[in-house]
Design a protein around this nucleic acid. Structure first.
Length: 434
RNA sequence: GUGGGUGUAGCUCAGUGGUAGAGCACCGGAUUGUGGCUCCGGGUGUCGUGGGUUCAAAACCCAUCAUCCACCCCA
């Protein structure tokens, strides 16, 4: 036997789990539509240089985590490690930069990392992006919206918000120099990896978790003391809105985010419930990124929610709704081995599905004894059975049995439909419950 | 890339060198058109894989793969 397994860090989402995914995705989607964000879908493969241009040469994603390969024409392709860049490519390609765009996406991302709790090679993000709105009101809209999402999922109290501002391009450069000078004094305490970062991109050291340099890192010069006046105003206004709308936050001067394209506002929703993979949602403003692709300066902001981590959080905090399983309403049992009867029963089923589109019917093809079928129906909590065999065929009727009320009636098709309608009236909108 | 743990039935796991096991799940029958029970029967297996030690290996040794956890980093 040849055994073929899924790739490392890439998981199947089986039927039992997929209902959870649908539940969460639907909750988020409803909130996004409520804010008139519309869905955008972009390919999961792009030309490699789309990512190498935008994400920053010194980020770990570019250095070691991309799934890159050549196609048959030797083109360098990459499975998207994140989606913001692809969306920018799409917005530019489709000439959509002249007006405000608010979009959301959901889908798989790929990073070649060693898997661990809350970290996978194929993982899923739900994200939003907004283009052409430069004011802090926009920043607040996204933060308030994510707050609403976590509230709707019941995990708001397990999360806290951290915010920071990275300032403008020029002030960032100024601060980078100051940070570099500060860090250089401690060069002897840094390992080769950290020294590499210090020279190439000192900001990367701010959120490092390497333990023996926490003192150095916590005492770095505060970026907020060096950012430009406009960015300060922007940040102060954002804080005002958050205060007024009762969104609690903590300012983390060392919050810089993993990608180089951010400017001004950055934020993360973190949790203490999941160990070291503690960021559930992260984002920020990237006002300079579109200009980088030879577009006119277009302000933009976005964020992404890690779905696996969200599910983990719901699970560990016991916030997953119970009873999400789709259960059939009735069990249709054919009792006969005769082909003519089986064929008739199949046609009858079609008729029932036409007449009662919301009814979920489980069909057993006379594959085991009648008794076993009743046993199974009981076990699956199905109380209404439709029975079809020799007797029913002769009389052109169907037996309907209620296992709970312990009743059984032989009904013609019309009264049968009416009976089923009355029994399942309240469940006719089953899917709309979530 | 680095470090540690774990790989035995569908699932959870027991099994310290001598016949491959338990619980749950599953399947068949008692009972082929009528109720969750009960009774009877069924192990469904490459003990992750390859090699070594041994009269004998699921167990000991080596290698390898997978997986989980952690570091780095990130959602």
């Amino acid at each position: 036997m040849i055994t073929i397994k899924s790739l490392k860090g890439m998981n199947d989402i089986l039927p039992k789990k997929s209902v959870i995914w649908q539940y969460i995705e639907n909750k988020i989607k409803m909130i996004l539509y409520q804010h008139l964000y519309l869905e955008i879908r972009t390919p999961i493969i792009e030309q490699t240089n789309l990512f190498t241009i935008s994400l920053g040469q010194t980020t770990d994603i570019i250095k070691k985590e991309m799934y890159t390969f050549k196609d048959k024409k030797q083109k360098q392709l990459t499975l998207r490690p994140e989606n913001t860049t692809s969306i920018i490519r799409s917005i530019l390609e489709n000439h959509m930069t002249n007006q405000t765009q608010k979009v959301w996406y959901v889908g798989p991302m790929f990073r070649y990392e060693n898997p661990q709790n809350g970290r996978f090679r194929q993982f899923h993000q739900f994200g939003v992006e907004s283009f052409n709105k430069h004011g802090p009101e926009m920043d607040s809209e996204i933060i308030i919206m994510t707050n609403r999402i976590f509230k709707a999922l019941g995990v708001q109290k397990y999360l806290h918000l951290e915010i920071n501002s990275l300032g403008s391009k020029t002030s960032r450069r100024l601060y980078t120099n100051i940070l570099f000078k500060y860090l250089k004094k401690f060069k002897n305490y840094l390992d080769s990896n950290l020294i590499y970062k210090m020279y190439k991109n000192p900001l990367r050291l701010l959120d490092t978790k390497v333990k023996n340099i926490t003192y150095i890192v916590t005492h770095t010069p505060n970026i907020l003391d060096y950012i430009d006046q406009k960015s300060i105003k922007h940040f102060e206004y954002l804080k005002k809105i958050l205060n007024y709308t009762n969104i609690k936050y903590k300012i983390n001067k060392n919050l810089v985010r993993g990608l180089d394209y951010y400017s001004r506002t950055v934020f993360e929703w973190k949790t203490k419930a999941l160990g070291s993979q503690n960021t559930i949602c992260a984002g920020g403003r990237y006002d300079y990124l579109l200009k980088f692709f030879n577009c006119k300066k277009t302000p933009a902001i976005g964020c992404a929610i890690g779905l696996e981590r969200t599910i983990l959080l719901l699970k560990t905090t016991n916030k997953l709704p119970t009873n999400m399983k789709i259960k059939s309403h009735v069990c249709f049992i054919t009792i006969s081995n005769k082909k003519t009867i089986i064929i008739k029963s199949i046609k009858l089923l079609e008729f029932l599905r036409n007449e009662l589109p919301n009814l979920i019917i489980q069909n057993t093809f006379c594959d085991t004894s009648f008794k076993k079928n009743i046993y199974k129906a009981k076990k699956n909590n199905i109380n209404i059975l439709l029975i079809y065999g020799e007797n029913e065929v002769q009389k052109n009727k169907v037996s309907i049995k209620d296992l709970y009320k312990k009743t059984q009636n032989l009904l013609a098709l019309k009264p049968l439909i009416n009976t089923l309608k009355s029994i399942f009236y309240y469940e006719s909108n089953y899917y709309n419950n979530w």
